[in-house]
């Protein structure tokens, strides 16, 4: 009893993208199916299911619709035709909380946290340097982690709903953090620094064994070109770029990656 519910609860606790399909009427009323990704954090992964709506053909049709609803990121009620009948279904989608991970508790990070929160993102700021990572400066962040990025990142789930930026101005800190992030399917990676800095960084990343494809995922110089110089303007440019990437992803699935 309640075995399927336990799986649903676990997926939601782990903040995994998943869909619970329920039959709302007819003889199979109350039938349940859980759809989730076989590789839970990977976009485009095959869909794994648990439970059944009580009919194989219906299950198959429902999984297709659940997949669409998961891509679209919203709960929806649908009518599906299967086995010569129409079925009234709720596809209840759990969308993971989007998260912005900022490496470097620098000045730009202060307004960046403000903007990210306004846009509904959970914010995490990582910096081991005590003079930067003060509670006073980051009282508005959801999490302030005072440790080295490499250590802090080991503990975190980095999924496609995670947006990741490095801002420390110190390659000794930024580069290992970038290497870690590029090993995960994060939704956005941005690194502060001029074109010249980035060219040097690319060389280091190559030496560390990063592929061209991985390196190409880094947005650098970071942010849309708004022409601004102040920390607030740069933070806004970064946030605008994240919003652009996020919207492209949901609109056109896998296209539009820069």
């Amino acid at each position: 009893m309640a075995e399927l519910f336990d799986q649903v609860a676990q997926a939601i606790r782990e903040d995994e993208l998943c869909a619970v399909v329920t039959v709302l009427g007819g003889e199979k009323v109350g039938g349940k199916l859980l759809a989730r990704r076989a590789a839970s954090r990977e976009r485009g992964s095959a869909i794994a299911t648990a439970g059944s709506l009580g009919n194989g053909a219906l299950d198959q049709a429902a999984v297709e619709r659940a997949k669409d609803a998961m891509e679209a990121g919203g709960t929806t009620r649908v009518t599906i035709a299967a086995e010569g009948r129409e079925w009234d279904l709720l596809i209840d989608v759990h969308v993971p909380q989007e998260k912005l991970v900022i490496v470097g508790a620098v000045h730009i990070a202060i307004p960046l946290v403000t903007f990210a929160k306004a846009l509904g993102l959970y914010t995490v700021v990582i910096d081991a340097r005590q003079i930067f990572a003060t509670q006073d400066r980051f009282d508005h962040a959801d999490e302030l982690v005072r440790s080295w990025p490499e250590d802090a990142l080991q503990e975190m789930t980095l999924s496609e709903s995670t947006y990741f930026v490095t801002l420390t101005h110190d390659e000794k800190l930024d580069t290992p953090a970038l290497i870690h992030a590029l090993g995960h399917p994060v939704g956005y990676v941005g690194a502060l620094g001029s074109k010249r800095t980035h060219a040097k960084r690319v060389a280091v990343l190559r030496e560390a064994g990063m592929s061209d494809e991985q390196i190409a995922r880094i947005h650098a110089p970071i942010g849309l070109d708004l022409g601004g110089r102040s920390p607030e303007e740069i933070a806004l440019a970064i946030m605008a770029e994240i919003v652009q990437v996020r919207n492209r992803r949901t609109d056109r699935s896998k296209e539009g990656r820069e």
Binding site: T22, L24, G74, T75, T76, R77, L90, D92, V93
Partner: peptide, 15 residues
């Protein structure tokens, strides 16, 4: 209990 349909300006969303 789950909200499965919303007509007009209901205070809680689908789901």
């Amino acid at each position: 209990a789950t909200v499965v349909q919303v007509y007009g300006s209901a205070p809680r969303p689908l789901g």
